[in-house]
Every structure is written in C-alpha cells, then in structure tokens.
Design a protein around this nucleic acid. Structure first.
Length: 634
RNA sequence: GCCGAUGUAGCUCAAUGGUAGAGCAAUUGAUUUGUAAUCAAUAGGUUGGGGGUUCAACUCCCUUCAUCGGCUCCA
C-alpha cells in the first residue's frame, strides 16, 4: 500500500502505510509538528491525529492561520467547560464556539460567575493543561449520542441533538473526564494550550432568542505563548485610549448629560466644528454628484406614518405621539416619507429621472436602555440620508455610481478597510419576486463589476428590499455599519409614486434609500477612533496653536494669527504666562496638528518656528513657508 | 428590556461602619520663560437620586437613575 500526501508547496510525500497528519508534520520538521494545531485534508478540517489512509492533499494549520486560531480557541473553550464542570458540577453546558478574538462558552447556572471564580477556573484550566490530556474524537450514532448526554443530564446538548437528522453520524470529543458534542477539529492535547486569559462574563440568551432563558457566558482568549497574550492585553489597553468616549472628553468634543437624557448628544464647539467640516464636505460632494439638498420637518402627523406603514412595522422604535389641536404628531424616526412627499408634490417625467434628494436629517428612535453606546448608538442622530428615485433602466448605473461614491467618500476620510455585505430577500417581505431579483442582481453585479469582495447575508435584507451595507471597525475591532444602500419596494407603492414614461402612461419608479456615512454621530465616533484623535488636518478644529514665548511676542503673535486666518487656517493663540514647554505639552495633548513658536528671534526676523504634532521641531522659517508646509499636510 | 459590574471635586483616583483626601485642571498672585508640566495661595463635595438599618453610613440593605461590558435589536 502506498499513500502519497501532497503539500501546499506542491511537494509530495510517500508513505507505505496510513499515517497521521501529525506524523507528516513531524516528517517535515519537528518545529512544524509542534506549532501545528489542526490540518486540512482534501479541503476538510481534521484533527492532527486523524489517520490519512488515501492519496490526499494536506495543509497543516498553525495558530497563525484563521483555521488554526479557530481550532485553538475552540479547544480552549472545551478546556474551560471542563474546568467549570469540575468546579461547579451542577452547571449545565450549552455551546462554546471560537469567535473573532478568542472564544466563549455559555453555561446554565443561576448565579453569575464572579471575578474570583474566573481566576479559579483559569487556574484549573492551567492544571488540566499540565495533565497533558489528549483530545479524543469518537463517532457515534444519534441514538448513542442521546444516551450519552442524557446519562450526563446535559439537557441543552439533547436539544442540539434534536435538530440533527437521525441518520447522521455525530462526533464527540473527550479530554479527561469531559465530553462534549462537537464537530471538531481540536488540538490533540491540552498541553498545546499555553497562555489563557478569561476576560469577561455576561448574560446571553439560549440560542440568541430573548424569549429563552438567559445563560451565563464567559469570554476568554488563549495563545501559544505568554508573549502573544501580553501583546494582546497591551492591544486592548491601547485600544481603550482610542475609545471615542475618552477622546470626546479629553478633546472636549461632546458630552451626554443625565438631565438632558440618555442617548442625546451635546456637541461642544470643538466637536461641532469637526461635524461642520464633515457636513460641509458632504454637501459639496453631493451637489457635485447631482443630488438636490432638501430640508424637512422633525415631526409629522399620524396619517403620514400610517401611510408609510411605520406605525405598523416600526412602532417599537418610535416615540409616543404628541397631541396638537386634537391631532397626533410623531417625531420622525426616518426621513423617507418627507422626501417622498417632496417628489410627489410635482408630476415627473421619465426625462427628469433620476431624482436624488439629500438631507442631513435628524431622526429620533427609541433604543432600549441597554443598547446605548457612546455616539455609536444613540436616540437622536442625524442620517446623511438621500433617496434616489429612478426608472428600472437606470438602476444598474445608479447603484454602481453609488458604491463608488460611498467608497470614495469613506476613503477621503482616511478609511482603508471595509467590510461589504449584500443582504437578500427575507421571509415575509413585500414586493414582487421579480423586482427583488432584479434589484439584488443589480447590487451584486455592481459589486462584482467594481471588483469588490463582499459577503452575502442570505435573507438579511429589510422586508421592503435588498441592501448593501459597508461596515468599518472601531478601536477594538467591533464592526459598525456606516454606508447602507437599500431598495424600497414598499414606500413607492404606499405613497403611489409615479412618473410618466416615454409611453405616456404612469409608472412606479424604483426607490433607493441610502446613507453613506450612516449617521453623523456614529461616523464621527468611528472616524475619531480610527485616527486615534489625530484627525487629518482638514478636520482638526484648531489647526495651528501660536505659542509666544513671552508676553513680549503677543503683538507679533496676534499679527501672525490674523495672517494665518486670512489664509484660511484655523488658528489660536495661547497667551498665558506659562513656560513654552507647558504650552507645547498642552497643544500636544489636545492633538493640535501644528504649533508655531515665536520668541524674540522670530519676532525680530519676521519668522516662526514650526512644530508638528507628535513629530517635533520643523525649524525656523518665514510665515509663507510655514503656511505652505502646513497646507501640504492637508 | 435581560445578565453582570460601576457611580466620591471639572478630570484621574484614595478613604476597617467613626471629622471625605491627593494629583492635575480652575481662580488669584508672583514669574517672562526656547521645544511635552515654574512656584505659592485660594476655592471647589448633601459621596448619582430616594428610602432604610445604626449612637454613627462613601462604606451595610432596598429602590431608582445613569454609565460600562455583553445578549437581543440597530445608523
């Protein structure tokens, strides 16, 4: 018998009898064998001790690969469950997957896990690692699996088994006294798991459904070396420094206030300036791209929301009505109905389309108290909203332009990495299947044509249409939705939107609802975190701080400020009788991009000494050179 | 909303159930300074709100509000 194993580099290794993946790894190098956590046999993930008994391609995964990390963390989750079961035998295990950064395991237990208990569990995990317990895979029939887990009293596992077809072969993994229902693969021994940190606890609904029981979740992470764990902990610390809530306070950008109410933002002058700059840019770009700016009211009569259907399908997110002269008015959770009425105020010919109505529209939505999160999730926010009304023929072109426009705008703010999602028709949606397909295909085709990678969220569209979402990550890797491009098959019909076609009859237009930044609040927060507070100079509320060394240079500094302001720079003076070092330190902490230091020498020669934030002294030069230098960074 | 943690001066944080404190910031004064903190004085508080236990509560209990980390939901 001869078995040949093809490796990713194309090399082939021959064996005269079946071998384990681990043996192949050892054959290549002991170091690779040591670093490997799982393998991929003919594209299927396997355990390292899986026996290869046929000609096959083999990829060995170390912790460096995605699959390696996932296996490593998943195995750590099992290890944690084992420790928890040993320490707290009454706890029932449920599920425990690997996640993007680490793993979690959900347990059914009345009390929450305390910080002390977490340390206790962590300690037990290390002890179990030291015992060098092998992870062993066992395949069994569904009936056997049911017997196994019902003997253990693990009712949640039985519920999971329930969903598996009777004829399927089920795998379980055992290490020491712990058995878990699991597809695998796993590391082959607990010694593989070295550095462990249990990070936090939380509640989590069984199967993610809030009608179900709330379980107790423990999050953790693990690494092959302590060094990597320490680096990760450092990364979390660094990320905390970039948190927009901290930066918002430090740089005096915005605040929330108990008395004003949760989820309602107060924009301080510095934050308001940044917002103003974002919005001005946004307006100019939209005008350049053929959008028309509109303004609409903050409230609308109940009839409007009945026609739009919001009172039916969006009621939970809307605030209670206010009564005016016997009529109910609602504060708007969306801008669409108003934009539609602007469209409907006139008759439209197909020759006018597409019509693009844009507004920085402030909306108010009721968000449950537990979900509020800095500026990322608030109750009053401004959408950079627009509605594109077009003919079916114009659809593809509009979508494509829209995606390009969105990405260009995000890039202009410095963003580079995006996650793009295409969400398709969900259950119980409105509109014709034919239209859905056309719209979904149009979205997909545009993404493909532009060479963009995207994930499909099957059935994740709104009930009224498919959509494309673009997400950006925050400081600790949480993804936040910014751009959303949504079709709407619902409102054009409800509001009876029409245009007169070339055939001189009325047609219903297509409508795209879109926001590029998403909401100004969330975008602002993401922007702040992305740049760690060091905004690009065109967005810095103060671009230059003039620092006179003594009172003697105050007049000169004032003159400089005036000239800089004339040239369009946002410039301020620090006139206090503090030492220069103190003023510099403060300007640095405020993350002001440039400082102009002027002392006796500069005043005498009509010069300035320029200093760049985080970079330091750039030397002495005349004002025009300084202004040019500053502008070259814009 | 649910599970848990937290809430003390503008900010960052101290204080066994026994007189609420520090640093920075602020104000006033002195200092006139050369690339990340000059010195001194002053002022600043119903310890998130309400209730309770106690001779005595920042500290213990109840309740409520907010924030933080998750879950569910979402721009």
């Amino acid at each position: 018998m001869n078995i040949s194993v093809t490796l990713p580099d194309g090399s082939i290794r021959e064996y005269d009898k079946p071998v384990s993946a681990l043996a192949v790894a050892e054959d290549i190098s002991p170091r690779l064998a040591d670093a490997s956590v799982c393998a991929e046999l003919d594209g299927k993930l396997i355990d390292l001790n899986h026996i290869i008994d046929h000609d096959a391609t083999l990829v060995l995964h170390t912790f460096k690969s995605e699959a390696g990390k996932e296996t490593y963390w998943h195995s750590t989750a099992h290890l944690m469950a084992q420790a928890v079961k040993q320490l707290f035998p009454d706890v029932l295990v449920t599920i425990g997957p690997a996640i993007e950064q680490g793993f979690y395991y959900d347990f059914d237990r009345d009390a929450s896990f305390t910080d002390e208990e977490l340390l206790q569990i962590e300690k037990r995990m290390h002890e179990l690692c030291a015992q060098a317990l092998p992870y062993t895979r066992t395949e069994l029939s569904k009936a056997e699996a049911i017997k196994l887990f019902s003997d253990m009293g693990e009712s949640y596992k039985l519920e999971l088994l329930d969903a598996i077809p009777d004829a399927d072969i089920i795998s379980s993994y055992r290490q020491g006294d712990f058995v878990d229902l699991c597809r695998g693969p796993h590391v082959h021994n607990t010694t593989k798991i070295k550095a462990i940190k249990l990070l936090k606890t939380s509640g989590a609904y069984w199967r993610g459904d809030e009608k179900n029981k709330m379980l107790k979740r423990i999050y953790g992470i693990s690494f092959p070396t302590n060094k990597e764990l320490n680096e990760y902990m450092l990364f979390l610390e660094e990320a905390a420094k970039r948190d927009h809530r901290k930066l918002g306070k430090d740089l005096d950008l915005f605040s929330m206030n108990d008395e004003v109410g949760p989820g309602l933002v107060l924009w301080h002058p510095n934050g308001a300036m940044i917002r103003h700059l974002i919005e001005s840019y946004w307006k100019e770009e939209h005008l350049r791209k053929g959008y028309k700016l509109v303004y609409t009211p903050h409230v609308g009569r109940s009839n409007l929301w009945e026609t739009s259907g919001h009172l039916g399908f969006y009621n939970e997110s809307m605030y209670s009505p206010m009564e005016v002269e016997g009529q109910d008015y609602y504060i708007k959770p969306m801008n669409c109905p108003f934009h539609i009425h602007i469209y409907n105020a006139n008759h439209h010919s197909y020759r006018e389309l597409p019509i693009r109505l844009a507004e920085l529209g402030t909306v108010y939505r009721f968000e449950r108290s537990g979900v509020l999160h800095g500026l990322m999730r608030v109750r009053g926010f401004t959408q950079d909203d627009a509605h594109i009304i077009c003919t079916p023929e114009q659809l593809d072109n509009e979508v494509e332009k829209l995606i390009v426009f969105s990405l260009d705008m995000l890039k202009h703010f410095g963003f580079k990495d995006f996650m793009i999602y295409l969400s398709t028709q969900p259950e119980g949606s409105v509109g014709e299947k034919e239209d859905w397909d056309k719209a979904t295909n149009s979205l997909a085709a545009s993404l493909t044509k532009l060479g963009l990678e995207y994930s499909v969220d099957e059935g994740g569209g709104a009930f009224y249409g498919p959509k494309i979402d673009i997400k950006i990550k925050d400081a600790i890797g949480r993804a936040w939705q910014c751009t959303t491009i949504q079709f709407d098959f619902n409102l054009p019909k409800r509001f009876n939107m029409q245009y007169i076609g070339a055939d001189n009859t009325a047609h219903q237009p297509f409508m795209i609802h879109r926001a590029v930044l998403g909401s100004v609040e969330r975008f602002f927060a993401t922007l702040l975190e992305y740049h760690g507070g060091n905004l690009p100079i065109w967005l810095a509320p103060t671009q230059v701080m003039l620092i006179p060394i003594t009172d003697g240079q105050l007049d000169y500094a004032n003159e400089l400020m005036e000239r800089m302001q004339q040239s369009g720079l946002r410039c301020e003076i620090d006139p206090r009788s503090e030492k220069m070092g103190y003023k510099i330190r403060e300007a640095e902490l405020k993350k002001i991009p440039f400082m102009c230091i002027v002392g006796k020498n500069e005043a005498a020669n009509g010069q300035v000494t320029l200093r760049q934030h985080t970079k330091g002294d750039l030397g002495t030069m005349d004002l025009d050179t300084a202004i040019a230098t500053i502008n070259s960074h814009a």
